[in-house]
Design a protein around this nucleic acid. Structure first.
Lengths: 205, 205
DNA sequence: CCTCTATGGCTAACATCGTTAGCTCAAGTA
DNA sequence: TACTTGAGCTAACGATGTTAGCCATAGAGG
């Protein structure tokens, strides 16, 4: 429900790139209108009723049609899910790129972490879908994955530290979504502690 | 296939506890023999053929019986999976407790990370099962989860840092299992970098 | 204006999944 | 000997993803 960020209105003025930042790859043209309605319905269902409710019959029902008709627009459920994953990665990429440009009261690294967490929690089911299990990279627009992960590189010089930081962030988000922390944990504190550890370490190169 | 660690032979001599360490809770007595065979078969299938192969019919077939017969021993598939999760948590707990006792060439924190990673990779499908999605805590022996997570507390004083460290480790393992890192990444380096960041931060309290 | 074709619906059906109901048969046990 | 219990069986149900094949409608070409 937080999403919808991708539907930009016209070519906005290109802000200058930060050192190491890359520009978003051109996304392939959108599919036909009905396909768009299908993934919108799928997303609505996923987020409001959870992953087990995301069935082809349920999605079709949302549009007032029968399940087999969906196959006129998508080759299978996996393709619908792939499209959802593309949405998620696009939105995360946009939000995190924006975050490192305008970190405001925080350091860039902390702003990135906060934004990432916020997106994950606000789109929990979608985040989980996009993030767990092995990724069907062949169904993704080329360059998207790299671009979405780019802010992490911008914020931290070293490749190893980039991956470590992202792993930390992902672990935090997914464990929080799944309710794995002991009840009553102050996760704000945990984010701060982890962020501080990486920040300090990055400063010492 | 690495597992099998839980089947201890006799009460081994109790090693003294580290500061902050807790003793393993008494596990409820094992179920009947057939139930044991069922979860053993389930584990074999899970690890050798992946999660989608773990069906009730497949498990039953492995034992030469029909699927509905499984329900004489378990109330449902969720119960079988819960038992697998208990195995995983028990084994992880044992290995990590051992690791912080005998870190040998590493610091305790690094030894813990190495052991955790090693278990996760050696039992990838099981680790995923035990770790993703929301946990049915009511099907777990009381105290098990806390005991399994205890080594992380022993190694790091601060509660927030404990959770941050564990999140990092889990993120690393699950992303490595799912093949999410760019191909060719040197993950040994990443583990070292993250571990160093936390170690340094912990040292400065 | 007629025809032809592509689009996007539809129903029927299949295999697989978890699961339930109800039967049977052997092994103890009173 | 009769009765209960344990542990298997078959048949079946409902849900899932998916395929096959039919039909109507809209637009293009003659």
């Amino acid at each position: 429900m937080t999403g919808r960020a991708a539907a930009g209105a016209g070519p906005r003025p290109k802000t200058p790139l930060l050192p190491g930042e890359i520009r978003r790859p051109a996304l392939p043209a959108g599919r036909d209108r009905r396909a768009g309605e299908i993934i919108a319905a799928a997303r609505r269902i996923l987020e409001s009723e959870g992953p087990e409710a995301l069935t082809m019959r349920r999605v079709a029902g949302e549009l007032g049609i029968q399940a087999p008709s969906l196959y006129k627009h998508f080759p299978g459920k996996a393709a619908v899910e792939a499209e959802l994953i593309v949405s998620a990665m696009t939105e995360i990429g946009e939000m995190t790129h924006r975050a490192i440009h305008r970190p405001r009261p925080y350091s860039r690294l902390m702003a990135l972490l906060r934004t990432y967490r916020q997106y994950g929690l606000a789109n929990a089911a979608l985040y989980r879908l996009a993030t767990q299990g092995s990724l069907a990279r062949d169904l993704l627009p080329p360059g998207l994955e790299e671009w979405a992960g780019n802010p992490w590189s911008v914020v931290t010089g070293d490749q190893a530290l980039v991956q470590a930081l992202w792993s930390f962030a992902h672990g935090m988000v997914i464990l929080e979504i799944d309710g794995r922390y002991p009840p009553g944990s102050d996760l704000n504190l945990t984010w701060r502690a982890g962020g501080a550890a990486f920040e300090r370490h990055a400063a010492l190169e």
